[in-house]
Design a protein around this nucleic acid. Structure first.
Lengths: 167, 167
DNA sequence: GGTCAATAGACTTTCTTTGACCTAAGTCTA
DNA sequence: TAGACTTAGGTCAAAGAAAGTCTATTGACC
């Protein structure tokens, strides 16, 4: 097994259900796995991204630390976030697959639905000759439309919370 | 006997009845059969296609692998017809909606799946400026890809989505 | 002999690991 | 209290590992 995967596992096991937050020292961890400290950063950068539902905070110097926080959101909120913040106006094929994989893993869409979505943004589907950036734009729109459809069916369960008004 | 056939046999024997999935290292296998690694790709591309009921997943880089998953096909007749005869190379929005409606009615796809498909071929999704005939071509390809996904569903295992690598 | 499947190999892309160097935050002392 | 030292995390680039793609050649069968 890859070291990166082992470290990922380790961190996820530290983070239990009721404690969606863990704090660790980079050097200690690196020591423990006898790897370069920057390996830890690599794991964080590839496995604990906002896409994957995590936020990283850290601090250098004496008493420094790295804190990993799992963002807990309802499926509705997760979908809204993807539609409104994450996707934007262009989406590469690789990114699309990643997002679909995430949603499947989180149980927000079924495997069959994921298969359909993957097909809809596949090269197969977009095989008509056109520049890559147009394909990316199309993928973004298609994904948003599909996720909106999914969000629509969850309406009752996860209403978007009313915006907080701090004034 | 041809090498390709031998390799095909070998892989199929690894995949027993109750374990419809096998994971292998390309280089190892090539080593074992003393052939070029790309020979393995050739075998996969010609013998383990979706048409033949297989899905291939793979990952590059350190600790990379190739996974072959056998799928069981569901009620294909109608879908095959749509994919191969009905749709062709162009499909208007209205036609697409009609086909999706029929499949729902016939219980071949769920209502949720239908919603996703409708979204994927909606004007929303295809809203990028482009000539109408290109849109119709795109709709045709998208529908075919999605229906193919439905035809080949019932995969037994889930792939771990590849990590995002922002580097 | 021509055609299509099979094979090998060169080159490309993606993901991982390591290491050298950089920066920020405490701590201590003149 | 400014500056030096120590502690700790951050960045980046290069090297390594493994799979993918493309193309030219070879071989088998009509």
């Amino acid at each position: 097994m890859r070291l990166s995967d082992t470290i990922e596992q380790f961190i996820k096991e530290l983070m239990t259900q009721e404690e969606p937050e863990v704090e660790l020292r980079r050097n200690e961890l690196a020591e423990y796995f006898s790897c370069a400290p920057s390996q830890i950063n690599y794991v964080l950068a590839t496995r604990f991204t906002p896409d994957n539902g995590y936020i990283i905070e850290s601090r250098r110097g004496g008493g420094g630390y790295i804190r990993i926080v799992r963002i807990v959101r309802s499926s509705g909120q997760r979908l809204q976030w993807m539609i409104r913040e994450r996707i934007g106006t262009a989406l590469t094929g690789v990114e699309a697959l990643r997002l679909i994989g995430q949603l499947t893993q989180e149980g927000i869409i079924t495997r069959d639905e994921a298969d359909i979505m993957r097909a809809a943004v596949s090269d197969q589907a977009l095989g008509v000759p056109m520049p890559e950036n147009v394909k990316d734009a199309l993928r973004a729109r298609t994904m948003k439309a599909m996720l909106t459809a999914v969000a629509g069916k969850n309406r009752q369960n996860d209403a978007v919370p009313p915006p907080s008004n701090p004034l």
